[in-house]
Amino acid sequence: MNAIAETAAVEAAPTTTFGNTVMDCQVQKIFYGDFLAVRDSHLPIEKNKIIGFIGPSGCGKSTVLRSLNRMNDLIPVFRFEGKVTYHGQDIYDKKVDPVVVRRYIGMVFQQPNPFSMSIYDNVAFGLRLNRFKGNMDERVEKALNGAALWNEVKDKLKNSGLSLSGGQQQRLCIARAIATEPDVLLMDEPCSALDPIATRKVEELMLELKENYTIAIVTHNMQQAMRVADTTAFMGVDISQGSRTGYLVEMGATQRIFEDPQEELTRKYVRGEFS
């Protein structure tokens, strides 16, 4: 196990030399207090692609995702060692304001979380936050269209965002996230609270969105990763040091990861031998 772990980190880097990298995440160590949650993982994120993070529970895939827009800074004991570059700038640089980072790198959460405001105000929230001066109605419509929700809500924009169904709420959250046209969209298990039909709609939406955005998605569902991700990163848990530390086992084109994985651990995982 340990041997696999060590080789993985070394091998993962050279196999991933991409040209059009928007973000480059080089984790050395991520701590929660004294607990080492993730170590030695290099994850380049390519423009207009969807990268899927898969792996067993507790492998740190959400932790890594939330490190990409500094959401983890809200947890006081969180500590990040390494580098995450966004268009060449390290977002963990002391001069960088995490609030600004999050305006460029949007996020969709596991649980749909609209604000208790009207549908319109939910979508307009980020625009108002950024003191958007243009045609608000137009941008709201565009965002709702982008999230494939416009036709369902166009006659009730004044209704509460919380009055929608779970799947609609999640698409509203996506609309809210894309209204400000962020560069990168992080999605933390966006479909885990949704039924299969709503899940399919969100997946179709992701495939449309990657035309304009770069998406990183954490998913528990391997089929979902196969359906939507261009690149898949498989993360494992290293228990050799007596605690549970996540690390990147292998990363590559989705088809290769699922059909011809290089690592034994990946092979076992994608075959469903453990989860």
Partner: peptide, 27 residues
């Protein structure tokens, strides 16, 4: 006020003051 709502606001790029004035207080 649910934590997920505050997370959403932080995720949008709100400062802590904005989260409080625009999400927590109205809710």
């Amino acid at each position: 006020v649910p934590k997920k709502m505050k997370d959403a606001a932080f995720g949008m790029g709100c400062t802590r003051a904005q989260v409080i004035w625009q999400v927590v207080l109205p809710t």
